[in-house]
Amino acid sequence: MSKARIDARFAALKAEGRAAFIAYVMAGDPDAATALKILKGLPGAGADIVELGFPFSDPMAEGPPIQRAAQRALAKGMTLAGTLELVRAFRETDGATPLILMGYTNPLVTWGYAAFARDAAAAGVDGLIVVDCPPEEADPLADALDAADVSLIRLATPTTDDERLKVVIRRTSGFVYYVSVAGVTGVKEADAAAVAPHVERVRKASGLPVAVGFGIKTPERAASIAQVADAAVVGSALVDEVAEAVDLNEDVSARVLSKVESLAKAVRRARQGLTAV
């Protein structure tokens, strides 16, 4: 099911002539029950693909928003097993929306790659992004994921030249994630004009859809990225909504989902008036 679910979603959106909106939220943020409510609400609010972070104590590629989200989740006892529980519960009501897990290597090493790949696939996970597991270290993980039919989604970055790109796209499937800025998540802003040629380069080399993330905070920015990429990913801006809602004692899921709606709407409208690609 797994790779097929991602491929089917991108094929459908291509037919519609629009980019995907990918919403990233952290498992267990601010707590397991609220996170599940958010997760279940994401497709209805307009998320075409869901990225679910599994928390790690030392997230070296994250800026402050996602660092804090991971801290909140860990403080409430979220685990990798708990993350898969959330995925299982999500799949009870949604069989079509691709769900990608995103996190760091060490919790996966602890679980064991082969067992984790099987358990993740059984829970309904379609793909995995492991931030600190570059192609040089990923073969054992890729073997395990292949056996379970889960996509290993790779990151290409502004430092990825054409030679390096060949290494990056080896054994990847589903889509390629283009990191739009050299930096951590949620700090710098992505520039669509600067990103466009790289998206084209990655698309051509991989033959896969290209999602762009790491610097998209506003509907306007999401729309401009959606004009050049196959998907726009927003994460830090959503987990910041969690933090603010908690601070202001507001309804967390309502606040996050309303932000998702505005971003998704912007992505849907982005190519209206443009020739469909």
Binding site: T105, R154, T160, R164, G183
Partner: peptide, 12 residues
């Protein structure tokens, strides 16, 4: 050992 770093750093 190994090189478990984000892709941005791999070329460096």
């Amino acid at each position: 050992g190994g090189r478990y770093v984000p892709e941005t750093l791999m070329p460096l």
